[in-house]
Amino acid sequence: MNGQAWLLLLEGAWTTLWISGTAIAIGVIFGLGIALVRMARIPFVDQLLVLYISLARATPLVTFVLFLFLSAPTFGINMNRNTAAIVAMTLNTAAFNAEIWRAAFLSFSREQKEAALACGMTSRVFFRRIMLPQMISSSLPGLVNEMSFLIKGSPAIAVIGIVDLTRVTNRISAVTYEPLPPILAAALLYMLIISILLKLQAMAEKKANRLAM
């Protein structure tokens, strides 16, 4: 592989990273929002969200990306490839994140809330100062784990023609007729990215364990 090929490869890696990164950033917040709404147990809305989460968890990302990209125009919505990819990945990861956040909500101890109320904190101050920081710590390992899953799922966007880190290997081998080196190089880059996330996850777990008294 020459320098040109490496450059293409890095471009592919960048595409994977920025699209996944955008989806992750929106998906984490979105997931928190869904979890909060679900805690309110609003009839009908709650069932709707359960259905969404169940569907999103069962649908392969490949299938979902194709579906969004191909069927949006029939509803008069014009999405370019990147937008379709980001929307699909966000809706996918938000469903998983919502469950992670919700688990953190449900396992939060009532005693801590009482201690906060007994000091005269309002529910808002309690949520912002006591509950949310702990929920972030205890959800973080799960959230980071979901991030690495999303990146492992990100080659799905190749199916609508986005040249990501996987798809770019086809491009390179179409010129060099040597498919093995670019695939191995791409694998190496994935290893690097996901190893970093696994490392972060281990660190987050260590921190979260401190909360369990």
């Binding site: 492992k152 799922g153 080659p155 996987t166 290997t169 695939i183 791409a186 694998a187 994935y190």
Partner: peptide, 11 residues
């Protein structure tokens, strides 16, 4: 654990 499934299929 650090590889996407598709890259293995590609390989």
């Amino acid at each position: 654990r650090t590889l996407p499934f598709l890259i293995l299929a590609y390989l």
